[in-house]
């Protein structure tokens, strides 16, 4: 937090009081609304939540039973997503961060493309996935198609975090490595990447969170089927789609939808905490 150098005595006139009142009111109301959103979902979902809910198959279109197949489908989609996004993201981030002199022009174009990608609405990713992965590559409605679509979506986030992690490494590491006559490859893989690992982990965790939260991009790519997927080429219903389907298309599905939403929120909270923990540990180590 910056610069709280205002002396207390400087607030005297009525606009000052107005602003003081407005900022505090805003902050308090937003906190209250946040608690309202979270607590009402906890309140509706907690009664439904049990170990059995996590481990059984849905019955009666999801009104009864659990969410085991959705958890498996979600996990498989995430695995596909990361398997593709990680090498692409890591490679791109390395090029952008470490070869910014030799590949300046190219780097600028890549960055522009990533800025654009970061703004593309998720439903458009869904349209693209349904044409490119499902139709042209012939993957149909499948976990593979959904995971690949999400991989395209998380790339900007993953690359930005990784690049920042690399750029925050002190120049002395690179100079030292160069003075020892280490090749660029050795410098990258033996010095910079291990040092920047926490940054990569934060990017990874945030990307998983983004992919976990996504719904619109999966409707036309991985589909709605709510049984256990037989393979990666099988359709499977992600947790977020389950929430959507139960609350919109299944009358009386609200309680299980709330419980599923609670599971999703809990997973995201854990990931968020993990990211915060890694970056905290990292920043204290640098100091």
């Amino acid at each position: 937090m910056a610069s709280k150098i205002f002396s207390q005595s400087s607030s005297k006139t009525w606009p000052d009081f107005l602003l003081l009142g407005a900022t505090w009111t805003t902050a308090i109301s937003i906190t209250v609304i946040f608690l309202w959103v979270v607590l009402s979902i906890v309140g509706q979902g907690l009664g439904q939540l049990s170990l059995e809910f996590l481990l059984t198959e849905p019955m009666n279109a999801g009104r009864d039973g659990g969410i085991a197949p959705m958890l498996i489908s979600t996990l498989l989609i995430l695995v596909v997503c990361l398997a593709v996004a990680l090498p692409l993201g890591l490679g791109t981030a390395l090029l952008l961060a470490e070869f910014s002199v030799s590949d300046k022009r190219f780097g600028q174009w890549v960055r522009r493309s990533l800025d654009f990608l970061a703004g593309v609405p998720s439903i458009v990713f869904g349209l693209f996935g349904s044409v490119f992965f499902s139709k042209i590559l012939g993957l149909g409605f499948s976990l593979l198609s959904g995971g690949l679509t999400l991989a395209c979506m998380v790339l900007p986030l993953l690359i930005r975090a990784t690049e920042e992690g690399l750029r925050s490494q002190p120049a002395s590491y690179r100079q030292g490595a160069a003075a020892l006559g280490l090749s660029k490859t050795t410098t990258l893989f033996k010095v910079l990447l291990p040092a920047a690992l926490p940054g990569l982990m934060v990017g990874l965790v945030l990307s998983v969170g983004r992919a976990l939260a996504e719904t619109a991009a999966l409707i036309f790519t991985s589909g709605y089927v709510d049984r256990f997927p037989a393979s990666l080429l099988d359709s499977g219903r992600a947790l977020s789609i389950h929430i959507f389907d139960l609350s919109m298309n299944v009358p009386g599905g609200d309680h299980n939808a709330a419980a599923s939403a609670l599971v999703l929120l809990a997973l995201l909270l854990i990931l968020n905490g993990l990211a915060a923990f890694i970056s905290l540990r990292w920043s204290t180590k640098i100091k």
Binding site: G91, L95, L96, F99, F106, S113, L117, V131, L188
Partner: peptide, 28 residues
């Protein structure tokens, strides 16, 4: 030779990444 391989594979990976935005526009 390793360095040459490295930078060119990085270039390929980055090109694929940059291509995603183009592909989305083209196919839509």
């Amino acid at each position: 030779r390793n360095d040459w391989c490295l930078i060119n594979s990085l270039r390929i990976l980055a090109s694929v990444t940059a291509l995603v935005g183009v592909l989305i526009t083209v196919f839509v």
